[in-house]
Design a protein around this nucleic acid. Sequence first.
DNA 1: AATGAATGAGGATTCATTCAT
DNA 2: GATGAATGAATCCTCATTCAT
Lengths: 189, 189, 189, 189
Amino acid sequence: MPRIGQEPKRRAALVAATVEEIGAKGSLDVTVGQIAKRAGMSSALAHHYFGGKAQIFLAAMRHILTQYSLDVRSALASAAPGQRLEAIIDGSFDENCFTPAAISAWLNFYVLAQRDEEAARLLRIYQRRLNSNLVHALRGRCNDPAAGAAVIAAQIDGVYLRAALNNGDMTGAAAQVRGVARALMGARA
Amino acid sequence: MPRIGQEPKRRAALVAATVEEIGAKGSLDVTVGQIAKRAGMSSALAHHYFGGKAQIFLAAMRHILTQYSLDVRSALASAAPGQRLEAIIDGSFDENCFTPAAISAWLNFYVLAQRDEEAARLLRIYQRRLNSNLVHALRGRCNDPAAGAAVIAAQIDGVYLRAALNNGDMTGAAAQVRGVARALMGARA
Amino acid sequence: MPRIGQEPKRRAALVAATVEEIGAKGSLDVTVGQIAKRAGMSSALAHHYFGGKAQIFLAAMRHILTQYSLDVRSALASAAPGQRLEAIIDGSFDENCFTPAAISAWLNFYVLAQRDEEAARLLRIYQRRLNSNLVHALRGRCNDPAAGAAVIAAQIDGVYLRAALNNGDMTGAAAQVRGVARALMGARA
Amino acid sequence: MPRIGQEPKRRAALVAATVEEIGAKGSLDVTVGQIAKRAGMSSALAHHYFGGKAQIFLAAMRHILTQYSLDVRSALASAAPGQRLEAIIDGSFDENCFTPAAISAWLNFYVLAQRDEEAARLLRIYQRRLNSNLVHALRGRCNDPAAGAAVIAAQIDGVYLRAALNNGDMTGAAAQVRGVARALMGARA
DNA sequence: AATGAATGAGGATTCATTCAT
DNA sequence: GATGAATGAATCCTCATTCAT
């Protein structure tokens, strides 16, 4: 078996292990050793690939946010023109990213963003993209698309936060946000 | 100067210092030494009064949640019967508790709650109380008070979360939540 | 009630508490605070009376060795001339000093003596006195009183040591040492 | 120099350093740092290999007791059938284990056994083995081999204890115990 | 590529001791 | 006489990181 091409696999394994470990611990207080062990390699190798703990965390963040983007994009791709908003909401609660571990990690990344400028930048990108998607989807369906987008975005985050406190269990999350959306659009008439 | 009866003062100073330090660092990774220094005493004394780091954190959490409760309660006390909902919302963004440090600490306490059962208990109490206040305030003003309360609560938390990412700066927060409330109630007719 | 004359009582209470605490913990790793608490006073007062932890320990040692001396002396006082040896042995296992706490403390004082010259001095005094008592008691009853005394003394200490390992429980201790004594004296004929 | 396979060496060095340090200090109050320094490594490495201070102590105890067992066994192996008792006694005072440091450490391990169940277990094993060896060696040579074994065992421990108080210097120790044995066996006739 | 070896720095916690009242 | 207040020093232990192989 060729040992070539191990690097991408190793990196992916470390990123996945990071999310799982943060999710399991419910905290950023995870050691590189724990992450590496979960990924089946030595901590020295983790350093070798990523350079340091901070970069491992950032890679994990990028992974989660990328996954989220993909979910929303795929939902939008197959959405009827008048159903874009619903598609975004459903994509936000896709089970790909709506796992307890991911939710916990996501919350912790908000914390990380308070210290780490790069982490904050990543989160802002995500927020901006979500916002722009929402504005676009609300255009013509409510009086003030910008304000509406802010409300929906905050509602999504708020729902995630509640889920984080309840071990990731939150049935009816998408339905609740859809309801808010309906109310906003109904208020137009 | 009397050297007696210092305990309450010291405890209060430590609690305040804890919130400030967590806020300043944006993380629970604050050392007892840092907290104690900010509070003007040795770390040994902090341990003497609280027993350990965990208890210091919990005391700080209790303090923030208590302060929040007081703000809401005082807003409710002076509210006209039909303005209870607006009072809760305004109380939630009272400048007493809506400081950058408190917002950051609040976010970090959500994280703490993922590991620490006592912290989770405190947050659940706060959520339950807020929820019950909201249901009460929505009764007769919207079709489904329970669902409405969930929406408002999530919206408040979502707005806080956004504020946490933006260094606590979020003007128009209360107005936005009021808007959601109006939409929910308008949807009744 | 006069507060006069508290000092002797306090000192005695601290000495007793020290022995008990060392016995209970099975270690010299007892804090002044624990001792003082057991004696019903503040650690500051313990320091006030004794000057420091080392002196508290030494006072406790003196107390145990003095108690032992008294037990042996009283046994000797009421012993028939030909029963002096048996009296010493019985006195060594008098229930006054043969309590689990005292045995444990005694072992720990041997340890203390390895570091603390004053503690070593106290133990040597005890050993010399015991030795001289034994030599005197063996005179005329065995060939080599000096050698016999060394044997009996070592046997007593060995028995104590075994008791220390078995939570102070050692029935038949005195009988065993008496047996050794008989053998030694029998060997004379 | 190969950097591989260091663990056994490091562990052995730490065990030896532990005995030496306890012997030098005459106390279990030795820090991991002191032990590690004496063994020529960082305290972190000591923790890495043993997991904690308690395990370092236990390993040192096991080492001493194992050494003692080996000394006795080797003495027994080359003993004439009628000289088993004398062999055990001589083995107990073999200069391999009868060093001042080892004697001091041995005493301290008795103290450790009062707190630590595993330490107590190790000592009990040693006592049981010694006892069984002695009973076997006394069979047919004295009236009550069990009682005789208890006497010899206590005598050995008592002699060790005296040595501990005298900086490990005790010439004539083996001779004294041999004398007791002779007396016991002579008492049979 | 991969890892065991190794460490320096740092943090929670404990405790003897001092001091002001 | 008696104590709560207060702290500096010390200790165990953890961890990110580096290095030699």
